[in-house]
């Protein structure tokens, strides 16, 4: 590339980074400002002193420990349930032939296409008649399995050579043991991919808890953060941004540790 072109390319790259990274920088910067520093125009880029107190204020403005624990329980609970239901189902779809298999798999594929935004109303009515409204179960059970996970893992299981399973059968291994000792270890990369996808999705989820909870007993972190807006005296942006940092930081840490797997996980959902 000629030098001028290279320079222009660099400028453009920098511009793209600014567009996507600047909002985050702005978020961090705001979260460490005093209220006064947020209310100036033109905006002040950096805080004079770092006001860590904002984080404590955000945390203490509601039962955030409860929210945080609820979020952890819900995201991890969903993950455990999903592994427990997705692995056997994917294995059966990949490895066994049985009457009505295609019908059941079609049901799975149809479910893959049904978003929460379509069915929240009737599910809400069901949960309320089962007494599960405003409980953590109501946040976990509807996602106790994942059509996407079944689809993804089925592909992986299908790629295991038939001979490996036959060898294990000759070695007197039970079907359960073949799944546990041979298939699941071989599918580990896919399980990690799917696990990251599921955890991030449900950690971030705002819609479902918004609709299914009514008290702080079962609210999750995103909901608690969103409620910060409604504190009396109006929104003070430094506290709001500090609150959001609490929500974003765990995800960003995971992203830095496992960037490649996460990108794989999310791009997979697109290229299925």
């Amino acid at each position: 590339m000629p030098k001028v072109q290279k320079f222009l390319n660099g400028i453009c790259l920098a511009f793209v980074v600014v567009i996507f990274a600047l909002p985050f920088v702005w978020m961090i910067s705001t979260s460490l400002k005093t209220l006064g520093e947020t209310l100036v125009f033109p905006p002040q880029w950096l805080p004079e002193n770092l006001v860590w107190q904002n984080f404590l204020d955000a945390w203490n403005s509601g039962p955030f420990l409860k929210y945080f624990l609820n979020s952890v329980i819900v995201a991890v609970g969903i993950l455990i349930f999903q592994f427990a239901t997705v692995i056997p189902a994917a294995y059966a779809f990949a490895r066994y032939n049985f009457p009505l298999k295609n019908f059941f798999f079609a049901i799975t594929m149809v479910t893959l296409m049904i978003p929460a935004q379509l069915i929240f109303l009737p599910v809400f009515l069901n949960l309320s008649s089962w007494g599960l409204l405003d409980t953590l179960w109501g946040l976990i059970l509807p996602f106790a399995t994942s059509a996407f996970g079944i689809f993804l893992l089925r592909q992986t299981f299908k790629q295991v050579p038939e001979e490996v399973i036959e060898a294990a059968r000759l070695d007197n291994a039970s079907e359960w043991k073949i799944m546990r000792r041979i298939m699941v270890p071989m599918a580990k990369p896919t399980l990690v991919t799917f696990g990251l996808f599921s955890f991030i999705t449900h950690w971030n989820d705002y819609f479902w808890p918004l609709v299914m909870t009514t008290t702080d007993q079962s609210r999750t972190l995103p909901l608690g953060i969103a409620q910060l807006r409604q504190v009396e005296g109006g929104a003070s942006w430094n506290i709001l941004m500090a609150g959001n940092m609490i929500l974003v930081i765990p995800i960003l840490i995971i992203f830095f540790i496992a960037q490649r797997q996460i990108i794989r996980a999310f791009v997979y959902t697109g290229v299925k």
Partner: peptide
């Protein structure tokens, strides 16, 4: 960097942009 907004909660994205 371009991908990173995608894994951030919509709550944070919304509030950040409100600001």
């Amino acid at each position: 960097a371009v991908f990173s907004p995608h894994i951030i909660s919509l709550v944070s994205v919304s509030m950040l942009w409100m600001w």
